[in-house]
Simulated scan of single mutants.
Amino acid sequence: MKLAIMQPYFFPYIGYFQLMHAVDEFIVYDNIQFTKKGWINRNRILVNGADSYIGIPLKKDSDYLNVVDRYLADVWPEEQKSLLNRLTGSYRKAPHFESVFPLIKEIIQSEERNLFGFLLSSLVKVKNHIGITTPLIVSSSLAIDHALRSEEKVMALCKARNAQVYMNPIGGVELYSKESFRGDGIELQFLKADNIQYPQFSNEFVPFLSIIDVLMFNSQERVRDFLNQYTLQ
């Protein structure tokens, strides 16, 4: 059984969904500390030929809380309108705007105010739209010692699901040791997305943008093709 474990991200890039598609089960961390500089509540879209950040405003709270303990700010209903207007302005002339925008709008206008609940729901809706059938599992639902950290927690989750293979994005090469995993009977693999490119109007291609960008410029069939364009190390 192949397993991947990731933080919940806000409309993540295509590599996130490649990883989800490549495994038999995909664990989403809810009991992991929120990080300001990561991709949990922000991402990048194309605006006038360049990348630009979008995000979800959060209620002010301790920086040490877990993702599941954070909530969207009270101004989010007003911010929704602004975000949808930005997306419309950026992508209304994209070839698949008419079929994709209703999905994005439904996700953004969700009444869920818990950050994790909002992100999990958005991941489910996007994966279903693309055609990914991998089940998502919430990390805290598994019976392990959740005080564990880093590699030890990953291996505990792998054992809890009887995983023989653990897949991680290529960025984890410096974090995890194949030898350590092998000692516990688990094969560690790293997924590296190919150099996926597609027309973005007449602009020079801007890589690694949100899945929103991928969906706006590519058919569902083409996006499904992208899911298999990676190498394993």
Score class of each variant (00 low, 15 high):
G183S: 13
A147Q: 11
T88Q: 13
K59E: 05
N41R: 02
L46C: 09
S141Q: 13
L123P: 08
I27N: 01
V28P: 00
H146Q: 04
K37V: 11
E25Y: 06
D145I: 04
V165E: 14
P12E: 07
H96G: 02
Y230K: 09
E204L: 15
A160K: 01
Q200Y: 00
G49F: 00
Y91R: 05
I5F: 08
S150D: 14
I5M: 12
S52W: 09
R42E: 05
S62M: 12
S52L: 05
Q220E: 10
P57Q: 04
T35W: 13
G55A: 03
E25K: 10
Y176E: 15
F26A: 08
K60H: 08
Q197H: 09
Q33L: 01
D213H: 03
D30V: 00
F217D: 12
E78T: 13
A193Y: 05
F26V: 01
Y64G: 08
R42L: 06
I56A: 00
N162Y: 15
L175A: 15
Q197A: 08
K2L: 04
V165G: 11
L115K: 02
S140I: 05
L83Y: 02
I107L: 05
T133Q: 12
N41F: 00
A22P: 06
G185W: 00
I211D: 05
F101K: 15
R86V: 08
Y230E: 15
V223D: 11
S177A: 10
D145S: 05
E106D: 14
R44H: 14
A4G: 13
E78Y: 15
L115M: 12
N195W: 02
P199Y: 04
T231H: 14
I40M: 14
V23Y: 07
Q189P: 10
Q18R: 03
V28M: 10
I170K: 11
D184L: 07
D61P: 09
Y9S: 06
F181A: 15
N31S: 09
V23D: 07
I108Q: 02
L120M: 01
G131R: 02
L188H: 12
N162A: 13
D63I: 15
Y166E: 07
D24P: 08
I186W: 04
I104W: 00
L215N: 06
I186L: 06
E187S: 11
Q80S: 00
L119H: 00
N168F: 03
A50Y: 13
V154D: 11
L46P: 11
G15C: 04
V23L: 04
M20C: 12
L188S: 07
K36T: 12
E187M: 08
L119N: 04
N114E: 11
K60A: 11
E174H: 15
I144R: 00
L19C: 01
P102D: 08
I211G: 03
Q200H: 03
L115A: 13
F17C: 02
